[in-house]
Amino acid sequence: MRKASAVFRMLAPLIAVGVLAAGCGTSQPSPAATSRSAAPAAAATAAAEKPRNVTPESPAPNLPAGSLYRNPANNRNEIVLADVRHTAVLIGDSQSQPKDSWPQRGIAALGYKLYVAGMGGTGFVAANDKTGNYIDALQRGDWVLPYGSPPLIVIQGGGNDAAQKATDAQIASNAERLLAVLKKRYPGSRMAMIGTLAKGAANGGGRRTEVDALLGRVAAKNNIPFVSTGDWLTRYDAAKDLQDSVHIKPSGHEKLGKVLAGQLAALGLAPRPDSDAAPQPTS
């Protein structure tokens, strides 16, 4: 018995080592090891759940031109255009709305395609019973901007603000708000403003001519090219082309469209040669 006890005392350490070794072979991995092994699977799951086209740099889904697309960069509906990189955006009132209006003619004559937003009876402050003023209508979604990066954005108006007796402060404030939104949304696009069509201060232009001058100051403050039209009805003998006190006949649209095209070109707003890469959509 004493010999057996002695043998057991000699073998006990070896038995203990074997048990520990066996235990290590079946132990659970450390939390760190679990985290590292699970990371690829978690990433794959997240990638599968992540919606497509969620960055402003991504192209819009394969939607036909005219479709609305919810831009995830700003959570706003935007319209998909067939060729946004060659399309100028025109925001305006009833002077811009006729298909062959002088603002549309002037911009198209430079070689741009056109996307027209806004509505007659509106302006920087002025609204009608269908839509708000330029900035409020945009914020509410009464009209939408294009998805992508148009090369040129032109804002025309002021006549309805004059008619509705908006103050200088109101007009300037809303114009600044609109410009801020457009600059943020389209930092790579060129911008221009067109003033208020009128007869001029010396020929009965009145408040319309004053608003034209005010918008010129807003444009200058924001370093945006401006086309003053506050005396065009007199300067270019277009008063005879009026069909009412403020709107012109097709003959007047043709005449002033040519004038506008020349002035926009002189301001360096003609289309630039295509670059190797199309502009990317921005947030």
Rank of each mutant, 00 (worst) to 15 (best):
P98C: 03
P279H: 09
V80S: 07
M193L: 14
A109E: 10
A38P: 00
G195F: 09
I15R: 04
P271D: 07
R272F: 00
T167S: 15
L267Q: 13
G195P: 10
G157W: 08
G23Y: 07
A41G: 11
K130N: 13
V89R: 08
P279F: 04
D276E: 13
N53R: 14
I171L: 12
R36A: 11
A42V: 10
V19Y: 11
E78C: 06
A33T: 05
M10Q: 11
Y147I: 05
I224A: 04
F124Q: 02
A127Y: 11
A6Q: 13
A88W: 13
R2T: 14
P146E: 05
G200S: 10
T55D: 10
W102Q: 07
A22G: 15
L197Q: 04
W102T: 04
S245H: 09
P225D: 02
V19L: 15
G141F: 11
L145M: 15
K113M: 11
G200F: 01
A137C: 04
V218G: 05
R9I: 09
T196L: 07
V227D: 01
N133H: 13
A198L: 04
G205L: 05
L14R: 03
A44M: 09
L81V: 05
R52Y: 01
T131E: 12
A117E: 14
L110G: 05
R2N: 12
A270M: 10
G120R: 08
R70P: 00
D168M: 07
A163H: 02
T55A: 12
G204A: 03
E78S: 11
G18L: 15
V54M: 14
A41M: 08
T234C: 04
Q104G: 12
R70K: 14
P59I: 12
Q95L: 09
G158M: 06
A239V: 13
D241L: 04
L215N: 13
A213V: 14
G148C: 08
D274T: 08
I153C: 05
A277H: 13
S251V: 11
I107M: 05
G118P: 08
L14I: 10
N160G: 02
S96E: 02
R76G: 00
A213R: 15
D212T: 06
G204S: 04
Y147S: 10
V259P: 02
A266P: 01
R190E: 07
V80E: 03
S149E: 14
H247Q: 09
Y112C: 08
I107Q: 06
Q28E: 12
D231Y: 03
S37W: 04
N203L: 03
F8E: 06
A270I: 07
S67P: 00
A238P: 00
A43W: 00
R235Y: 00
T55R: 13
T122I: 02
A39V: 01
L145R: 11
K99G: 07
R185H: 08
N174V: 03
A202L: 12
P56T: 00
A88M: 08
P103Q: 07
T122E: 06
K199E: 12
A202H: 07
P64A: 02
V19R: 01
L179K: 01
L110R: 09
R70L: 15
I79M: 13
I194Q: 06
A192H: 05
G159D: 09
R217P: 00
S35H: 01
V125I: 05
